[in-house]
Nucleic acid binder design. Structure first.
Lengths: 120, 120
DNA sequence: CCCCCCGGTTTCCAAAAGGGAAGCACTTTC
DNA sequence: GAAAGTGCTTCCCTTTTGGAAACCGGGGGG
């Protein structure tokens, strides 16, 4: 007699697992949460602004991640008719639905850091 | 005159960014949320149980991820004195503090899937 | 004329992540 | 004594990810 999955065999758990995979396929990588978090805080930002705001990111990654996020409709890109051509990146309405998740992540990270470096 | 970061220059934002990096350094990878989610649902599970519950994972990844999670005190590993030696993996009290985050992730993933495959 | 700023793309490369298959030690069951 | 189950580790390989640096084109300033 072969054993089968017990916990995750229920439809509700299969859906949860699928959902986690779905979400991670959009949000994985070192920078996506940083970019989204920055755009949620600061309304409209240019490419160079983001490069300055997000410590450690380089032009290649920023450009690639912005394309990914735009493709998934989480952020929007608008080219402005200014004298030196500028681009405005901003969070979309849909991207804003991630703010609860990002808040949870940041909240947990803050508590984690407290637990590691002691209760001062 | 050199421009400086405006949005993330505030201490509160620096802390958030740091927190996001901290959290992701523990939780990154393809399987950690699945393992944690499964252990939150099902109380105590053996290695082979997890292998069956988590669709697609192989022994190598499971073993490695379990070690990572144990090192960070998110799960606990207890070797049992049973006839065929068995190991019980379970979520720690600390690991359980992730359930809100995992719920948010799953919730968002479910809504995302709905938005992609239309409102049926 | 040269350089800097904006907003990127391209190239090259190193490191990390991930997966398959096999092996290993031990025990029970057939 | 052979197979099967439990809990891994090791090896080898491919894919993915990430980063530094160069380059590009247009515009403005000195």
């Amino acid at each position: 007699m072969k054993k089968k999955a017990l916990v995750n065999n229920t439809p509700v758990c299969q859906v949860r697992m699928q959902a986690i995979s779905d979400a991670m396929s959009l949000l994985s990588g070192k920078w996506k949460f940083h970019i989204l978090g920055t755009l949620i805080e600061g309304d409209k930002l240019g490419f160079m602004d983001l490069l300055r705001e997000i410590n450690g990111i380089g032009t290649k990654m920023l450009s690639k991640e912005l394309q990914d996020l735009e493709m998934n409709n989480l952020i929007s890109r608008k080219v402005m008719n200014t004298k030196p051509i500028t681009v405005e990146y901003s969070i979309t309405e849909y991207g804003r639905t991630l703010s609860a998740l990002i808040d949870e992540l940041a909240k947990w990270g803050i508590e984690y850091r407290k637990s590691v470096y002691g209760k001062l």
